[in-house]
């Protein structure tokens, strides 16, 4: 689980071009879409759907599903494990 989270942080940075951020800057429970967290926007959310398919083979067909899933690295990791479970 921890490996998956670290992997996700690296993938987030790469997929979203978060060049001024390192994995160490992202906590497992950092809110991805809050301005107090990473401050991602609606296009980033769609790019995270691409990330899930590209790196984890998981298809999200409705962007609304992403809302809960993409809350934090924790919630993303849980979702991936559940879908792969």
């Amino acid at each position: 689980m921890d490996d998956l989270k670290e992997e996700l942080k690296r993938q987030l940075i790469e997929q979203l071009n978060l060049e001024e951020i390192t994995p160490a800057d992202i906590d497992d429970d950092t809110l991805l879409f809050s301005d107090k967290g990473l401050g991602l926007d609606s296009i980033d959310a769609l790019e995270l759907i691409v990330l899930l398919e590209k790196y984890h083979g998981i298809q999200v067909t409705k962007p609304e599903e992403g809302k809960e899933v993409f809350r934090s690295v924790n919630s993303m990791a849980e979702y991936i494990l559940k879908r792969k479970g």
Binding site: L16, N17, I43, D44, L46, E47, V50, E53, K54
Partner: peptide, 10 residues
């Protein structure tokens, strides 16, 4: 070579 990227498309 993969999938259409929304962040490129915009």
């Amino acid at each position: 070579n993969g999938a259409p990227s929304p962040s490129l498309f915009v």
